[in-house]
Nucleic acid binder design. Sequence first.
RNA 1: GGCGAGGUAGCCAAGUGGCCUAAGGCGGCGGUCUGCAAAAUCGCUAUCCGCCGGUUCAAAUCCGGCCCUCGCCUCCA
Length: 473
Amino acid sequence: MKNTLLIYNSLTRKKEVFQSRCSGEVSMYVCGLTTQDHLHLGHAKAFVTFDVIRRTLEYFGNKVTYLTNFTDIDDKIIAKAKNLGEHPQFLAERYIESYFEDVKALNIKPASFYPRASAHLPEIIEMVEVLMNKGFAYEVGGDVYFRVREFPAYGALSGQSLDELKSGARIEPNETKEDALDFALWKSAKPSEPYWNSPWGPGRPGWHIECSAMNLKYLGMGFDIHGGGHDLLFPHHENEIAQSEAYSGQTPYARYFMHAGLFNLRESKMSKSVGNVISLKKVMEIYDPMVVRITLLKSHYSSPMDFYPELLDEGAEALLKLKDFYYHFKMMINQGSNAEHTEDQGIIKTLDSFVTRFQEHLADDFNYAGSLGMLFQLLNDLNQIKGGSKLILGKAMEEIVLALEILGLKVEEDKEVRKIIEMILSYRQDIRKNGKYDEADQIRSSLMDLGLIIQDSPYGTRFYRNTKRNNIR
RNA sequence: GGCGAGGUAGCCAAGUGGCCUAAGGCGGCGGUCUGCAAAAUCGCUAUCCGCCGGUUCAAAUCCGGCCCUCGCCUCCA
């Protein structure tokens, strides 16, 4: 693609022209899950965002290496496992499984690798040792801390000086640290806690070091895009930069930092600690997972999103519109003629304009909300045409399918079940021809009770699954 | 206190100097089409982009001031 791709880079707080480390290849890392619970809508927002970013980069002709991690060593996991009388690794494993179920339902493309913190202890320990040798870290009673004052660029990402950070400090006083802002690279194990052996005694890695260690191992310094939720900007990403650049002596750690806006529930961020979480699995019991996806796609990735009661219903209606068009248009093509049609030239023009605008929005900092708007605009335009040649209508369909693919929206489902329903509908069509409307309406109503939408049209009867399960009567 | 984001129709939301007398989604009202239903379609639903000034031939978009909302600074996607 010849589009110049712009990316808002949190490092410079500006949109920049994207240039990857190697032309045609993009390496990206997305801070993944701390495996302590099921996913909620906030996770979905971040993960869907970076999935579309990845798909867009691929669409623009890049080969993308996409990493997302599991932080499966963590204080909360340990605490929760202890509560349940379960081994922390088992607990982590359950949530990893749950994660895979959810991201699959959301049609998030698989990552190239899913590195786990627990599988990278040697790399982590090596990093900490080097940081100590270079004077960037110190040990106190089995704990190792990063010495933030030794790293002059500390605070660059969050736009804060050390003193500013300190004055806002809600940091627990800790006598053992040289500076309140120093953060843990290694934590000594308390009795009965799981541990790994290290030069500083039994313990476990601190929170931030695992991302650095895995990134440096798989992607190397200066990889292209580092993503995550906006809540990770400080301290997590700030600390990652400090420890990675201090360790390697090179800069930058990552060329572009990108942050997805947070999902808020009634004015407070949806996070574990506040407890106002909407479980993704619960939402997906009620709505088609694609409802979640299209809802998240309706606003800019970097904007925060507020939850309100109608939010998902609106997405459900929007998805229905997409599905209805898809099946309607398919029938129209099937019954189209190969002959040229008076509308053909107009359709070509409409398509060209759509493709241009769709791409322009994506190329401008992945404005998928704008692109989705263009797609709906195209649907409205195509609904107005009286017909077209099979060839041109087919081309339009190809563009739509491609657009849906980039946005990761699946509208077609279960081919097997479709055959059975087609048989039923063909019977219904016969009796309709004979004027037996009461029975035909009865069949339609029964199918709708099963969660199907049935639409009679001059092209035949189309059907697809409803997007909201409690619409099922 | 510091840093950041934002205020666009009934709701959500894109647009950030002229293509804007402002996309798109949801909703509402009226018409067309239809065996019915639904979908679709047509018309109407912001003469205006938080407020006040300024710059400019031209501003929702730039500058200054004010008001308000949200997030981060503590574990979090």
